[in-house]
Design a binder for these strands. Structure first.
Lengths: 198, 198
DNA sequence: GTCTATACGTGGATAGAC
DNA sequence: GTCTATCCACGTATAGAC
């Protein structure tokens, strides 16, 4: 039974339509360029309703980007298994998430993180505290090398996401997931557990 | 940017001041978010002068981004030498260019390429026709694998540039160039000449 | 709960004075 | 050549009617 006190949430269907439209708009145009009006038009509602439900553009963005995927659910499967396969498993999971509908939120974040300092900070903190740190904590590596290894993994994975979903450079954009797993996996593996200097 | 005290010199220097300010502004904010007014303020000139010299914002962008570095000058040094060292030499050159003042144009392009389709196309075409193709033409690799190898190199190098200069994730952002050469070089080497599938 | 109307700001571009 | 003044489009946000 729904609670009767507090602020009423409004028509759930309308709210969800706005949210879906916002996710698409932010993914396609980034935070700054996406407009409330365009979101409202796509959701076929009045622009004022967007404010009514979400208050401000920032809050709408946060709601739209609110991770449909939680690293805490995905990472255990990546971390389980042999140490030498973690690179490929990480890339496989990474590509699958970004290729899925949930990936739109990632594209929105990524597109926005470039040209907007506060979204860049969101990405930085999400990467370091939610993803990289969790992975590296499970690997028995020299703590002194930990930040560098994490950063290197980030360069490769974010670079992959940017090329595949933002710049859309071929043949990366249309590559089969397993092709990327087989080629990029070893790179990530080396960054995580390999020798960093020859 | 460059502080100018006292009376402004003649005038042809005004154009260059605008251009320098534009490069900085586009690099810091991207095409859409950068404003003519801010460029004019940084160059300490009237906003109307910017239009007077460059006509439109697009033309100003193109003038500001007009490659201060030409791949045709840099690549021969990368390609010369042993085949097994090309990865490290490419990363060394790449990092040096992006760290130099000329790198601002690259950051401007990169920042703009995200959320603006026509700049994204500029980056795509520059990468494929001016950089990747030239490198791979000099390596004796299976032509069928050529586009994939080029794309993989792009994911790693652009990812590096994004993390170091746009998102500014530590410790990548402050890493010594040779640290990146030693760690990322082997990755690029494998993408260029190594076995792609295990 | 939904919409109309509008305040308020920003930014690209232009006309015309000096 | 350089600047003042201004136009016009667009976008966020809010007040208030229904």
């Amino acid at each position: 039974m729904a609670r009767r006190s507090g602020r009423r949430p409004g028509n759930p269907a309308t709210r969800d339509a706005i949210l879906a439209a916002a996710r698409t708009a932010f993914a396609e145009r980034g935070f700054d360029a996406a407009t409330i009006r365009a979101v409202a038009a796509a959701a076929e509602v009045d622009p004022a309703l967007v404010h009514h439900y979400f208050g401000s553009k920032e809050q709408l963005f946060l709601a739209a980007v609110q991770a449909p995927v939680d690293p805490r659910e995905l990472l255990p499967a990546v971390l389980a298994g042999d140490r030498d396969g973690i690179g490929e498993r990480l890339v496989r999971t990474f590509v699958a998430v970004w290729d899925s509908p949930a990936g739109a939120a990632g594209v929105a974040l990524l597109r926005s993180a470039v040209g907007n300092e506060w979204t860049a900070r969101l990405v930085r903190e999400f990467l370091t505290t939610q993803v990289l740190r969790r992975i590296l904590d499970h690997l028995d590596v020299d703590p002194a090398q930990l930040p560098l290894r994490g950063g290197l993994v980030a360069t490769q994975l974010i670079g992959l996401a940017v090329m595949r979903h933002v710049i859309r450079l071929e043949p990366i954009a249309s590559a089969e997931p397993e092709t990327l797993v087989a080629t990029v996996g070893p790179t990530v593996q080396r960054y995580l557990t390999g020798e960093l200097v020859d």
